[in-house]
Design a protein around this nucleic acid. Structure first.
Lengths: 227, 227
DNA sequence: ATTTGGAAGTGTAAAAAATACATTTATAAA
DNA sequence: TTTATAAATGTATTTTTTACACTTCCAAAT
């Protein structure tokens, strides 16, 4: 047998839910369609799987094409295969989410009309993209409580307040400042620098950095991140 | 624009990780390939997506084809797309897991050489199916602790011991009998029948049933299953 | 009728984790 | 030097989780 004859092939796409954080709000990157159908509506950035790449590669390519960024945290979510999900042609799509530290990396490919939206001000999207975003949010919430992926969204140096604000945005609830700090400090994976952010207050607040090496060491000693 | 021209199409398959429980052991249903390549090796049950069905439908069809069963709990897991994962032809596969109450439902389609294996006696599988099973186990563990899916694997009436044995098999660890019972009873979603299972001991142990209605009511009141 | 063996059934104390909560401190600007 | 404002800090309480051992019930054997 040389190949699987007479089986239906299908168009396979990837769609990226791109999350970012600007020190205050959790954001999502969307593009405005400038072609039919649904011209003028907002959508996720996507692309078709090519014969010479796997899905992770395709998702990375699509993200890179829009943002120019490499080495971004991405994770496959799930497949969407409703028969009529794309009115143009039957297409199955696999969603991925990406976490971007917006700081400095806000230069987007001009060929797309892309825009960052606050997650709670997201416009209505085409096809089943609203559902994809909803599912991505729920995965993000889960992941953020079991892996320190939150740090992917922050600049190298961040304040406790920024970290807490980010987690509040992800979890969608307010957290008690003292309990939050106690818990984070208990994890023992942050380094307190001697620099201060003087923008937010007169007193200034210390910058921290995430200690990836220490984190990895702890993980290999059986430590499991749990926020 | 009528369709997406010049884009590569791909074969899309579903592969099913079929879990069962026989009152003692967590099991997985595998089929023996009677064609090349890898003839004689064990594999997951799978099939190709057809043009007129979505992935859930395809997975349900594949499962039904092998077991004759309908109305089985299935959940999509993830996609596997390595370029060389199937030596015959480039194929992307979406894995699903199913939970079957083996009790009485052990008649399998004779056209496949299918066999139930204890999960810890699983043979080596073809392609990337070992990885699929590993990932399915980890999803099963997570789901079993956040949704009462364990009950899908049990017959309508079951003893506390059977339920505990099942959860031990899923979680891969021994649980304290009293703590387990206290926790389950605390959930208040079981009905204690006045029948006893006289097979396991002279004293006999009471049968319980899962109260799906009560569970649904509690869920809509904001209750979240957490074991 | 009595004994026996073995799983079923049951509760509590201790430890750990999560939560609720209010005052002091540092600094720039007025 | 006063003031305004966010940063920083600790503890008591409640809830959850864990550890742990004896009694009960019944069929089978005597």
């Amino acid at each position: 047998m040389k190949n699987y004859d007479n089986q239906n092939k299908v168009l396979l796409a990837v769609d990226c839910i791109i999350f970012g954080f600007d020190k205050k709000n959790l954001k999502i990157l969307l593009i405005k369609r400038d072609f039919e159908p649904e011209k003028g509506k907002w959508s996720l950035m996507g692309g078709f799987l090519k014969n010479d790449e796997n899905l992770d590669t395709a998702a990375t390519r699509v993200l890179n094409h829009l943002t120019g960024l490499d080495d971004i945290y991405m994770e496959q979510l799930r497949s969407y295969s409703a028969l009529d999900r794309d009115p143009v042609e039957r297409t199955v799509s696999v969603s991925y989410y990406a976490l971007i530290n917006i700081e400095g990396h806000d230069t987007l490919n001009e060929n797309f009309s892309a825009k960052w939206f606050n997650i709670d001000e997201k416009p209505d999207l085409i096809f089943d993209h609203n559902l994809m975003v909803k599912n991505a949010m729920s995965r993000l919430r889960y992941r953020a409580s079991t892996k320190p992926i939150g740090f992917e969204l922050l600049p190298e140096k961040f304040t406790m307040k920024q970290l807490q604000t980010l987690y509040e945005a992800i979890l969608g609830e307010n957290l008690d400042k003292r309990n939050f700090i106690n818990k984070i400090n208990g994890l023992d994976i942050l380094i307190k620098t001697d620099e201060k952010d003087m923008n937010s207050s007169r007193k200034g607040s210390f910058f921290y950095t995430f200690d990836a090496e220490k984190y990895q060491l702890k993980v290999s000693d059986g430590f499991a991140f749990k926020l």
